[in-house]
């Protein structure tokens, strides 16, 4: 994972009107090869939502860390 460059960190613990997937959909779309977006989420439901979204859209979930109620995920192209 050393070679992955983090393009952006998205704190989606309090997502606004675009919702967690709305924000992520766009930022992930802007990723280049070898880059990842670091996503911070709250709750298991959000984590599952992002995982199923990533699978559908063909993005890779490189890493998932649980930090208290929060999840930190690394998503790459």
């Amino acid at each position: 994972m050393d070679q992955v460059k983090i393009y952006k960190e998205l704190d989606l613990t309090s997502a606004g009107c675009a919702g967690p997937l709305g924000e992520l959909n766009q930022v992930a779309g802007d990723l280049k090869e070898g880059e990842a977006v670091k996503v911070i989420l709250e709750g298991k439901e959000s984590k599952l939502l992002v995982e199923s979204w990533a699978k559908k859209k063909g993005f890779k979930v490189l890493d998932v860390k649980e930090e208290g109620k929060k999840y930190v995920m690394l998503i790459a192209k």
Binding site: A15, C17, A18, G19, P20, L21
Partner: peptide, 13 residues
């Protein structure tokens, strides 16, 4: 709409 549903916040959706 680009993501599932009509709006991305679950309650309003």
């Amino acid at each position: 709409y680009p993501v599932e549903g009509v709006f991305a916040r679950p309650i309003t959706n």
